[in-house]
Design a protein around this nucleic acid. Structure first.
Lengths: 251, 251
DNA sequence: GTGTTTATCGTCAGAGAGACGACTATGATC
DNA sequence: GATCATAGTCGTCTCTCTGACGATAAACAC
């Protein structure tokens, strides 16, 4: 409905706090991992949580997410498609606003999803007491009694972010955001395997990704850093959508 | 980052207003239409806008969207998948929070997407001065100089909602949300044609939707309301995902 | 009855994916 | 240096699915 002008009087409305929370995903040692920080204050003191913080009065939502990401990891993210630089991918995930999700006051949190290549160090920057990369397999798919859950509704946010990542690499070239600027087909395949938690046939995968126009650009070089026969190096091509998509194996 | 406790002091933060905006889509006369309301006050007085309103202090975001939808249209929406009732489908779309998107104060708006069967009357309920169903073809894909644009950033929100609907019916059974409880294959096909703006082959479409397990349940009856040979009536089956998906024809 | 409209069933060729064989080029080990 | 293990790359076969399109069926209008 169209609200009356008087309703815009700030004093007439209890204030909402608006925050951003980040689901930062990367692939480390064949496992999909999420960045967690340890909370230093109540509530949920000592619990692990997603990084995040308040949106400042004069900044946009994506801007706030990007700033928090830089504060936590030093990563420079951008949401522009077809990135060929070393930055991470950032996109809005969803917004969480259950009235009691924060016991102190009404907080509406806009969650962002970040896909980043493997970072050298977990670097607990900012004012979080500590930070770590946690394999999402150990955080998800467990009963709430297994281990300590995440603070607030961050377990749900993380689950939504992981599902978004899993489905989005099906029909987009976003999986390259997990890779360094130059990568091999095998490295890209291991990304898919880690994110989906499956094993893919190397030959069919190779045929699929090299046969999709614009997905991969040969950079000319080769590498043997994975052992075995030298593999061709590629960079991400300009294509952002995969048509036809590469669907996850069922079951 | 983890913020200090003092930052939770409401007086320390300029309040954000949180609203919900609704992209309500339906199919009328072979065209995809969106619900618009005419603004009665400044700013953008006299402009068409998406329906929406403030989130109340004690209600969740989806709850607020559902309430606004009921106030505007009388529809009872639910986001539970596999709905067999006459209600509309509701899902969160995205959140828009550019600092200057509302000239009066900082407003963060959580947009929801509603897919509804054709409603008997546009029913301008609530306190909007008037409401109408507008074909999205006339609102999108035009230069900003063609006609009057929507208020605020509602043109962008509408475009995002339409794109979400277009892509989501590819791999889900959501198109049935545009249909009455009982519908024919031809009626469902006309939904796809209206949403995508294409013409589909009736025979291939029939084969695809009747061959996908769980998509359609025969209800036993037949109808001739579309003219021609009587068509079998179906209800939406329990399946929510289409595998393999039904991809839009390219270009 | 004849024509029109819509629904439904079939056929055929081509694209694409899964399963898997074969070969290549490197480093590691004996 | 020969052998082995590892990973990469090319090919083949089959099956499924899709797009194009012919043909038939069952209603209504005249």
């Amino acid at each position: 409905m169209i609200v009356a002008m008087s309703r815009y009087d700030p004093s007439a409305f209890p204030p909402f706090a608006v925050t951003v929370d980040l689901v930062v995903l990367t692939v480390r040692e064949h496992a999909l991992c999420a960045l967690l920080v340890k909370r230093g204050e109540a509530p949920f003191q000592g619990y692990w949580a997603l990084p995040g913080g308040f949106v400042r009065p004069d900044e946009g939502l994506a801007e706030a997410a990007s700033r928090e990401l830089a504060e936590e990891t030093g990563l420079r993210a951008h949401s522009t498609p077809g990135q060929a630089t070393a930055g991470a991918h950032l996109e809005q995930l969803a917004t969480y606003g259950h009235p009691q999700r924060d016991p102190r006051m009404r907080v509406v949190s806009v969650a962002y999803l970040v896909l980043a290549p493997d970072l050298p160090t977990p670097r607990p920057g900012g004012d979080a007491s500590s930070a770590r990369w946690a394999p999402v397999g150990e955080l998800l798919g467990k009963t709430p009694s297994d281990g300590v859950p995440l603070a607030f509704d961050h377990g749900q946010i993380l689950a939504d972010g992981v599902e978004r990542a899993r489905s989005k690499i099906e029909y987009s070239s976003l999986a390259t955001a997990f890779c360094p600027p130059e990568f091999t087909v095998g490295e890209l395949r291991r990304v898919y395997e880690a994110v989906w938690g499956v094993v893919l046939d190397p030959r069919n995968f190779h045929r699929k990704v090299t046969g999709t126009p614009g997905f991969l650009l040969p950079s000319g070089g080769t590498t043997t850093r994975q052992g075995g026969r030298p593999a061709q190096l590629f960079t991400a091509g300009g294509a952002t959508v995969l048509n036809p998509p590469m669907l996850r194996p069922e079951s």
